[in-house]
């Protein structure tokens, strides 16, 4: 089976030779090719070469377009800091006021270098790697993107105290999200992963989630022409997953390493795809036996679950992760 076939079989529930594997090796591609991170996160060709190297060295079933959320903010004028061994981080949000954000023209691949980079990376990957591997794009929902433009506190303040402006912003960004997502699907990517933050009750009140966030999710997701994966965004997920499980076009959920797989399965039902849950950012600290032990626990837990994809949770697998740890993970799952 190819990786793509294995991922499709996880959606349909058909039997596979072993569970499909999704590892967030977006950053790791730079290590494999020796590319500096500023270049890697600005040149779509360099990023593609990194993903090609990831395929050749590890061949996970899913490959990711740049996991560089800062680029989404940069497209609106936020400043990013480029670090030697990590994905770029927003150093200074554009700190647009709600009015300024509403007046700002939306960036596109034709008009903006950062969107062009993200789009071109996806296009190259879909064209050259997408026949054998599932290609996952990464986008932010209309409710999550403003935090990278206005700053977390600026957006939080707008949602809480200036609801009318917040709604106008989300209306504007809903169309943007749908256009971006459908452009990626038109280029041949297979799925889009959405790290969600502003639907988590650890961040925002349950009242705002129900009355504000979920209606925008429903509206935006319903207009997307392909399957979506809701990603836990670095926080535990199970306590509010019941709110998200029936959203349109959501085919899968990627959960936190601390969430319980069995519990998630009960919440989302038998047929949605479940991804998880070895902690990706911790893989550089584990020993090979520890990796094997975690894999065994997860595989035992999900035995017989044909809609399960073995996945690294949270953010990127760190740059300094010993390749032996990744090999051990792959070997453990592939011999299952």
């Amino acid at each position: 089976m190819t990786g793509l076939e294995r991922v499709f079989a996880s959606v349909t529930g058909d039997k596979k030779d072993y569970p499909a594997i999704s590892l967030t090796l977006s950053l790791y591609g730079a290590r494999l090719t020796g590319c500096s991170l500023p270049e890697y996160y600005n040149s779509s060709l360099k990023y593609y070469e990194g993903m090609k190297a990831v395929k050749e060295r590890f061949n996970p079933d899913i490959l990711f377009t740049p996991f560089a959320l800062a680029a989404e903010g940069e497209a609106f004028g936020s400043k990013a800091k480029y670090l030697p061994f990590y994905a770029p981080n927003i150093a200074k949000p554009a700190t647009l006021s709600p009015k300024e954000l509403l007046e700002t023209p939306l960036p596109s691949a034709a008009s903006n270098e950062r969107i062009k980079y993200l789009y071109e990376s996806a296009r190259l990957m879909a064209k050259n790697l997408g026949k054998e591997n599932a290609i996952a794009g990464i986008l932010l929902s209309p409710v999550d993107l403003p935090a990278l433009i206005m700053g977390l506190d600026g957006w939080l303040d707008t949602i809480i105290f200036h609801e009318e402006e917040a709604r106008k912003i989300c209306e504007k960004l809903t169309g943007y999200f749908v256009d971006r997502a459908n452009a990626l699907f038109n280029e041949g990517i297979h799925i889009i992963a959405l790290p969600v933050i502003f639907s988590n009750p650890a961040i925002i009140t349950k009242g705002i989630i129900d009355s504000f966030v979920l209606p925008y999710f429903s509206k935006a997701f319903s207009m997307v022409k392909g399957p979506l994966v809701i990603h836990h965004g670095g926080m535990q997920f199970n306590n509010y997953l019941n709110k998200l499980k029936d959203l349109p076009n959501v085919a899968a959920f990627a959960i936190d390493a601390k969430d319980k797989l069995k519990e998630t399965r009960e919440i989302i039902g038998k047929e949605k795809v479940l991804l998880g849950n070895i902690d990706g950012p911790s893989l550089n600290r584990y020993s090979v036996p520890h990796v094997e032990q975690i894999c065994r626990r997860i595989l035992d837990d999900r035995e017989g679950d044909n809609h399960f994809i073995f996945a690294s949770s949270a953010a990127d697998i760190p740059y300094d992760t010993p390749p032996e740890n990744i090999d051990a993970l792959l070997k453990a799952v592939r011999r299952n």
Binding site: L156, D157, I160, P201, A202, I203, T205
Partner: peptide, 9 residues
């Protein structure tokens, strides 16, 4: 069960 938004408010 307190959110960051609660803390902010």
């Amino acid at each position: 069960d307190i959110s960051l938004a609660h803390g902010y408010i």
